[in-house]
Amino acid sequence: MTASKYNGFPELRSEYPLLPEQIQAYERDGHLILRGLANEDEIGIYRNVINELVQEHNNQTKPLEERDTYGKAFIQIGNIWMMSDAVRQFVLARRFAKAAADLMGVPSVRIYHDQALFKEPGGGHTPWHQDQIYWPLDTDKTITMWMPLVPVPQEVGSMTFASASHKHGYISKQEISDESHRTLKDYIEGKGLETVDYGAMAAGDATFHAGWTLHSAPGNPTERMREVMTIIYIADGLTIAEPDSNARKNDMAQWFPGLRPGDAAASPINPIVYP
């Protein structure tokens, strides 16, 4: 793949204005949907190159029935923005980054990393979890954008979120597993937290959720791949925390290469994307 092949892709610089009530809803619930954050034409152009990279870098060879719960949940390829100038333009897009900054109420954001999450036909559910148990950061200024590249029908739907669970902070160190699903489902029910999903989504719609927001996703009973791109943003100016788990140690090495606890969370692969 050559850089020149992808010249002329949409820059995604225009703003998506947020209403005060949308920001308030995100602060209250820890999640929000923004319909039409990217339009059909924009997504159609980027989808092809993202799809190509996922196929090229997918090393999953086991059939679904032979995988564990995590393996059945999705094909997962990270930092694909570093593999293609076109995807770089998508992941580092100012439009998406400004929405993330506005929702978090911060003046500037960096990329933590991206992930393509493709749920195969017949793929399993994604267990309840908190993203930030993996991240060596002691902050509430983290957010994930989850954007389908294809229409997602009602029977697949958006992720399911436990509203206001982000206010509970670090609930459990359990990584994504059957155990995390059981434990956190019991926690949600015990605390009486409302669960919300946004149903069918168009390509280019996007949900945003805080790093501590509990969330899960249903399986894919359809015959079509659920193609999703995620981008994780962090506020600029954060400091790397001392990892308190192997998951966080591994993430520090992978996503903050060459950095140590106490350093600024700002390696060369965590560029500022807004402003």
Rank of each mutant, 00 (worst) to 15 (best):
D114E: 10
L149Y: 02
G219D: 03
Y70S: 11
Q115W: 04
M145H: 01
L117F: 13
I240F: 01
P17E: 04
I234A: 14
F208E: 03
A202T: 10
D41G: 14
G8L: 04
E194W: 05
A203I: 07
S245G: 07
L64W: 04
D131F: 02
D178E: 15
M82Y: 08
L259T: 12
E52A: 15
H31R: 00
R110V: 10
I133T: 15
W81V: 12
Q132L: 10
A101Y: 08
G211I: 08
H166E: 05
T69W: 01
R248T: 09
E52P: 06
E65P: 05
M252C: 05
L149C: 07
Q132K: 05
I50Q: 02
S177E: 04
I75Y: 04
D114R: 01
V228H: 03
M229H: 08
P261N: 05
V91H: 06
V152I: 15
Y134D: 14
M83A: 09
E42D: 11
G199L: 05
A253M: 03
L193F: 06
F118P: 14
D197P: 12
P268W: 03
Y170R: 14
N250W: 07
K119I: 08
V156Q: 03
K119N: 08
T142A: 15
K191E: 13
I188W: 06
A253G: 13
V196G: 08
Q130S: 11
G122S: 04
L259H: 10
I176M: 11
P257Q: 00
E120G: 06
H166S: 06
V49P: 04
Y198E: 09
V91G: 10
D178S: 14
Q174N: 12
T160E: 14
D140H: 13
I234C: 14
P107W: 00
A200R: 07
Q60E: 13
H113M: 08
T213V: 12
F74E: 08
I231C: 09
A73E: 07
E179I: 15
V150H: 03
A265M: 01
D251H: 12
D68I: 02
G258K: 05
I75F: 01
E179N: 08
V109L: 07
L117S: 09
N79R: 10
G78Q: 11
L92C: 15
I75P: 06
P153S: 01
P127M: 00
Y198L: 01
D29T: 06
P136K: 00
F96I: 13
Y233T: 10
E175K: 00
W128K: 03
R13K: 13
K119W: 00
D186N: 15
R95K: 07
P257W: 01
K119H: 03
A247I: 05
G78L: 06
P153A: 00
H168N: 15
I171W: 04
S180V: 07
E52Q: 02
N48T: 14
R94T: 12
Q154M: 13
Y70T: 12
D41S: 15
Y233S: 11
T183F: 10
H113A: 04
I43Q: 07
T239S: 10
G122V: 05
V49E: 13
S245P: 09
G36H: 01
I43W: 01
G105E: 03
S180E: 06
A253I: 12
L193A: 04
T61D: 09
H129I: 08
A235R: 11
R248N: 09
I133P: 13
A93D: 09
K98F: 11
A266C: 07
H181Y: 06
